[in-house]
């Protein structure tokens, strides 16, 4: 298992590099167990990621994934999450960016990281599709998993995932248009 000590050391090193190259980017360290994350300010996100990627002390050249958390009752509502991997240092790092919801029903905006890592392009499309975060500067921001004309963003906490009420055979209605009457009994 990856040792917790390794993760803390990776966090510290990343913070040092960022404080040096992009001061003001790191707003806090989230050190809730078992792993930690760096909280990054939205304005400095792109520069911070570029620094983390290019500086040889960190070398986070591989993007693992990016997504978002919807804290419905909290202000700011969203947390953008980025997980990165450094092959040279053999460490992994998580960045979180608090993001406020858009005003009066608009979608929130955030800077796109597709210029820093092309691998983030599709992950940002997925975050836009399922959570409704618009990434400024993204080359091709459109829905990726849901049909193009779908309304709503399913992974948001206020989106009700509708299914079908379960019908039990002893209480099912055998009306001509019900699903139960269409199957051939054996």
């Amino acid at each position: 298992m990856a040792a917790p000590r390794l993760e803390a050391a990776a966090l510290d090193r990343a913070r040092q590099v960022l404080d040096e190259i992009v001061p003001g980017a790191v707003t806090a360290i989230d050190d809730s167990p078992p792993e930690g994350a760096l909280l990054i300010d939205e304005q400095h996100l792109v520069d911070a990621c570029r620094a983390l990627r290019d500086d040889p002390r960190t070398g986070y050249t591989m993007p693992l994934f990016s997504s978002a958390l919807d804290w419905l009752e909290r202000e700011p509502r969203f947390d953008l999450v980025y997980q990165l991997r450094s092959l040279t240092q053999n460490t992994t790092l998580r960045l979180k960016v608090p993001l406020a919801d858009g005003v009066s029903g608009d979608l929130p905006h955030a800077p796109s990281l597709s210029a820093v890592w092309p691998g983030m392009e599709w992950h940002e499309r997925e975050t836009y599709d399922l959570l409704g975060v618009v990434f400024d500067g993204h080359p091709d921001l459109r829905r990726i998993l849901m049909p193009d004309d779908w309304e709503g963003h399913p992974l948001r906490k206020d989106y009700v995932s509708f299914g079908e009420p379960v019908l039990f055979t002893d209480r099912a209605s055998f009306a001509p248009d019900s699903a139960m009457s269409r199957g051939a009994p054996d």
């Binding site: 989106y159 995932s161 509708f162 299914g163 699903a179 269409r182 199957g183």
Partner: peptide, 12 residues
């Protein structure tokens, strides 16, 4: 999968 994404039976 009784949710938003899956058609509940292809006989629909």
């Amino acid at each position: 999968f009784n949710n938003y994404a899956i058609v509940q039976g292809v006989d629909k």
